[in-house]
Computed example of a mutant assay.
Amino acid sequence: MAKVILSEEQIDEYWSFLQPSRPAMLTTLNKDGTINVAPFGWNMPVSANPPRVSVALVNSPPNRTLTNIRREKEFVLNIPTMQVADKLVQASYQHPSDVSKFSVIGFQRLESRVIQTPGIAECRASLECRLFKEVDVGDHTLILGDVKVVSFEEEDYTKDLTLKIDQAWPVIHLDQYRKNGGQVHSFVKTAGLHNIFVPYNDR
């Protein structure tokens, strides 16, 4: 059966086919020293040696996270679980420029080891990053960060650092829509593992 071709008018929605996403929350320092927090779904590892991550940040409207990273040259990539999914959504909302979303939402500080920007204590893992490079890729800026320190909840991971999904439900975001007084976000619920054995080809 032939597949439907996405129209030219909709081609900018290609990213929908890369959903669901695994949003992380970036903490950065505001100019006055307060902590800013915002969630971003377009993030991924790009190098193991050296350890390096990427995050795509929208250019317009003005993005406080991007402004802070350019000024401070650092950020923390915080990996949440579903226990803080409601706070993750709140962190996506706009706040006045003189308001620290971090404080309003009620996150607890996780002091960093080698950078000034704190992480989020409620997240299962936090990656302290220093800015390596930024690349203008269109309507987003790609931020590449060198991972300097990783802190994590030991009980949420196996010895080989595999997430224990039975106790640390990962945040997998599928969709969102507006409703009177707020937004509804759809998250994928994990229901255990489905293991598949695939034998090697004969050589």
Rank of each mutant, 00 (worst) to 15 (best):
M1D: 14
A2E: 14
L6Q: 05
I11F: 11
I11P: 00
E13W: 14
L18M: 15
P20T: 10
P20V: 12
S21A: 09
P23C: 07
M25K: 10
L26I: 08
T27V: 07
P39W: 07
W42C: 07
V46E: 00
A48Y: 05
P50E: 11
V53L: 15
V58Y: 13
S60D: 10
R71P: 00
R71A: 14
F75I: 01
L77N: 00
I79S: 05
P80T: 08
M82C: 07
A91F: 05
V99P: 01
G106M: 07
E111Q: 10
A121Q: 12
R124S: 14
S126V: 04
E128I: 06
E128Q: 10
R130Q: 01
D136P: 04
D136E: 11
G138D: 03
I143F: 05
I143E: 08
V147H: 04
V147W: 02
V149H: 14
V150Q: 07
V150G: 11
E153Y: 00
E155T: 08
T158Q: 00
K159H: 14
K159C: 03
L161N: 14
T162M: 03
P170Q: 08
P170K: 13
V171K: 08
V171E: 06
D175S: 13
Q176P: 00
Q183K: 09
V184D: 13
S186I: 06
S186K: 11
F187N: 02
A191C: 12
H194E: 07
V198W: 15
N201K: 15
N201M: 04
